[in-house]
Amino acid sequence: MLEHFVKPQLVSDGILNTAVFQHDGALPEFPLIVSDYLNRMLPRWWIGRSSPNIWTPRSPDLTLLDFFMWGCINSHNHRVKITSLHQLCERIVEAVNSIAHDQLQRVFSTMAERWSLCIDK
Rank of each mutant, 00 (worst) to 15 (best):
M1R: 11
L2I: 14
H4E: 14
F5T: 13
V6G: 02
Q9P: 01
V11D: 05
S12C: 05
G14V: 10
I15D: 04
L16F: 02
N17E: 10
N17V: 02
T18L: 06
T18C: 09
A19G: 04
Q22A: 11
H23P: 01
G25N: 01
A26M: 05
A26L: 06
L27G: 07
P28F: 01
E29M: 13
F30V: 04
F30T: 12
P31M: 10
I33W: 01
S35I: 07
M41K: 08
L42P: 00
W45F: 06
W46K: 11
W46G: 02
I47W: 01
I47F: 03
R49A: 05
S50N: 15
S51G: 07
S51A: 12
P52E: 05
I54N: 12
I54A: 13
P57I: 09
R58F: 05
S59I: 07
P60S: 13
D61E: 12
D61L: 07
L62Q: 04
L62Y: 04
T63G: 13
L64I: 11
L65I: 07
L65T: 09
D66A: 01
F67N: 14
F67E: 01
F68Q: 07
F68H: 11
M69P: 04
W70N: 04
G71T: 00
I73L: 03
I73V: 15
S75N: 07
H76G: 05
H76A: 10
N77W: 01
N77T: 06
N77V: 10
H78E: 05
V80G: 01
I82D: 02
T83N: 08
S84T: 11
S84L: 06
L85V: 12
Q87K: 04
L88G: 05
C89L: 08
E90Y: 02
R91F: 03
R91E: 08
R91Y: 03
V93C: 12
A100T: 08
H101F: 11
Q103D: 06
L104H: 09
Q105A: 15
Q105N: 14
Q105S: 15
R106M: 10
V107E: 03
F108H: 10
F108G: 10
F108S: 13
F108T: 10
A112V: 09
E113C: 12
E113A: 14
R114L: 01
W115E: 12
W115L: 15
S116F: 09
L117Q: 11
C118H: 08
I119C: 08
D120A: 12
D120T: 13
D120K: 14
K121I: 08
